[in-house]
Design a protein around this nucleic acid. Structure first.
Lengths: 221, 221
DNA sequence: CAAATGGCTTGATTCAGATCAAGTCTCTCG
DNA sequence: CGAGAGACTTGATCTGAATCAAGCCATTTG
């Protein structure tokens, strides 16, 4: 920690570029950071990190290049811990290692869920599942506010903003009303049926999503 | 290890079902194991594990339910280590913990790559990238043999066998000839261009794929 | 050895989702 | 306050990939 840098970063600043060597472990202390990947024009949101969580721990541990880029979505406070110090801590402090491992395992499981989602469900089902999960994470409240921009949700879910918009509208017929940022689940049973039940796929343990990776929690309302 | 079970398993046997509690860490000593996920009829291959590698380490570490199922593709020899022993070893043996962490980080990075692939490339590009990566993993040999059934490759890559077949055929025009199990890269430059350059996306470190997760290595020929 | 099974290919057709093209609304900023 | 920018929506159209339907081939099995 003594070697770490504490930084205030304005919104919309890219703080990590994929391909670069993993010099620092990043910790989001305040604000919100998007992890994304891009190739020749195309771009995909991989996760959104909220306080207090780390990102690119895996690259640090392996001393390998970053696989994702990161940019701030809001003004954010980041703690940058030099990778060598992280690796030293992992090697000498077994409690640190244990916690790092839990974090890593959580990230992995979060990504497994995300990938299953992409491969096994179509757009409407993915959205239904997402909304249900959001609702569950705040205690099964039927109403809540979307925590990030829709275009970001669309990218994370592997679809275009246009299709997200259409899907949102069409969900009215399946138990969920979306108006602007406001979401109201009107018929949970119906929505769950659409999502392809199997909340096994999304639950019961929140894993990484509780830790702040994947997409942020909504606010109940 | 003293508490572990050493088992010979016939082909096509499901040894792990998603949703079940993670009672054992599995180690593939011989053979080949497919990790897959399914919901209501649909099914997706998530990875193929080859010796010597572990699977479902993350579930063990977190003491959480399995997120994937596992079945043998061939007659296989598996070592089942009770999860509690794994967690005990992690807690007491810092070298063990360190290695487990490396493994976990490798799996995570492998999955990040896979997900980027799914989100950023279309079917032909994914296949081109896959073939190039296979070639690279055996030392840039232009010719090799596909290591698993095509239907499995198709599922792993998130497409139907029909489309994989068509894509393979169409790649003849882009620098790669596939005949049965045999692959010959005739024009690497062209194929790389199609794959969307960015071998950043797939390299340079092999991470998990070297460790035996993702899809198996091909055989040079 | 004939039948069956399962993987693979091929063609025809369909459809989910992408793309293209406006247009609206909100928020910011000069 | 008016202009501009960016997010979002909506409709029309296009297209990549899925689905459906045979047929082929190799391997297994009775």
């Amino acid at each position: 920690m003594r070697a770490a840098y504490d930084q205030q970063i304005p919104p919309h600043v890219t703080v990590v570029s994929e391909g670069a060597p993993a010099d620092f472990l990043h910790v989001v202390v305040e604000g919100m950071v998007e992890l994304f990947a891009s190739t020749q024009g195309r771009e995909a949101t991989m996760a959104v990190v909220r306080p207090v969580s780390t990102f690119i721990l895996a690259a640090c541990v392996r001393d390998a290049p970053y696989l994702m880029s990161a940019r701030t979505l809001q003004r954010s406070r980041l703690l940058l811990v030099p990778s060598e110090n992280v690796r030293a801590a992992v090697a000498t402090d077994s409690r640190f290692a244990l916690n790092a491992m839990q974090d890593l395992a959580g990230c992995y499981r979060g990504l497994v869920r995300h990938t299953k989602n992409l491969k096994l469900r179509n757009t409407r089902e993915r959205i239904a599942a997402y909304l249900l999960r959001q609702s569950r994470l705040i205690g099964d409240a039927p109403g809540f506010t979307l925590p990030v921009e829709k275009r970001l949700i669309a990218s994370y879910m592997g679809m275009t903003p246009e299709n997200l918009s259409r899907a949102f509208k069409s969900l009215a017929a399946d138990g969920c009303k979306i108006d602007g940022q406001r979401v109201i689940i009107t018929d949970r049973v119906r929505l769950e049926a659409l999502a392809g039940l199997s909340l096994l796929l999304d639950g019961p343990d929140p894993d990484a999503s509780a830790a702040g990776v994947s997409l942020p929690l909504p606010e109940a309302s």
